[in-house]
Design a protein around this nucleic acid. Structure first.
Lengths: 189, 189
DNA sequence: ACCATATGAGACAGCAATGTCTCACGAGAA
DNA sequence: TTCTCGTGAGACATTGCTGTCTCATATGGT
């Protein structure tokens, strides 16, 4: 019997290595990506038709991880505040990849973006909208902007951690507290 | 009499055009930059030795505009809350350029970054620290993170406006309210 | 042992952008 | 007019990355 393709595991490894590298250096060469993954450029090119295909695959990975994080966070259950905290916590391992894709997406200006992002945007925006409807969140900040801001804060946090300006363990707390509570000190109750 | 160089005004025009273009398309060619500025590639090359020099000049411009915005915002006067609002308002016209440089800075990973950014970081962090000392801001979010988050929100806001997902007039309000107040609805006093 | 398949190494051409050059044109000063 | 200087247009070589190819090797199943 022939097992024609056990590249699946390798493919995932390459993808994650590439994600880690491109997060740090978004202009890394195919050669650098290959070296980082411990394979030759030829093999890299066999698995991903070209740099474009690699980025697309990373995009698909990012989308899948976001969806998985959303599923894990149960955004429809309990207080929206807690759901947001669960979401950030679940999405933390993917934050670096997300930060890369967030800036890379600026390149896709002409073309239509992957429908997966729309789905994710909608699910996150729905969470914020639910929080507004429940009276937890203020209504003068639109769900779309809160979603956008969440992406921005995730990217900022990922970079801050990557460059050693923030301790990894503070990631979730810093993002959630700023996003939800803001910088202002609350009045004592 | 000979007037050897009235390129100063042109240089500024080219710089601002390049900033506007690179904000939208960060991989724009020297040729595209030149065409956008209404000059030939040769002239562009005469004013900026190369693409690197152009980006450096844009960085200097961004630093100068940030410093000017900080001066204008008087970060040491009055409540820190108001100072932050003044700062965001003053920095709004430069937000696009800032967003470009914010992502471009990820490229300078190896080299030391321009000292100007350190100065600006320090001034903004000092503002947040002052707010903390005055009891306006909570102390569990570090000034460094608040500074980083401000950059991230400025970039997110600039992109949201550029892509039509946010009205330009909402820019300052959305950023300041989220940064200071957060998404949570405040208890009625 | 034998065969199949994936891999690594490297050669190769193509391409896009860069940086440098020359030259002709035109506006402005003398 | 005449001279000068900045400019635009384009040619040119160079560079770095890409994508494709071949071939030798190693690994793993039969």
């Amino acid at each position: 019997m022939v097992y024609p393709c056990l590249m699946a595991v390798d493919r995932d490894h390459v993808l994650r290595t590439a994600a880690a590298l491109l997060t740090r250096k978004s202009t890394a060469t195919m050669d650098e990506v290959a070296k980082a993954a411990g394979i030759s450029r030829a093999t890299l090119h066999r698995q991903f038709a070209g740099r474009d295909a690699l980025v697309r695959a990373l995009e698909a990975l990012g989308i899948a991880e976001c969806e998985a994080a959303l599923d894990l966070a149960r955004p429809d259950e309990g207080p929206a505040t807690d759901a947001v905290r669960r979401l950030v916590r679940a999405i933390e391992p993917s934050a670096g990849l997300l930060a890369f894709l967030y800036t890379e997406n600026q390149l896709f200006e002409g073309e239509e973006q992957n429908a997966g992002w729309t789905r994710i945007d909608d699910r996150i925006a729905a969470l914020f909208r639910r929080g507004q409807a429940a009276g937890e969140f203020r209504i003068d900040l639109t769900p779309a902007w809160l979603t956008e801001a969440l992406y921005g804060l995730l990217a900022s946090g990922a970079w801050a951690v990557a460059e050693g300006r923030m301790a990894p363990k503070d990631f979730t707390h810093m993002i959630v507290e700023l996003l939800l509570g803001g910088a202002l000190r609350r009045e004592e109750p």
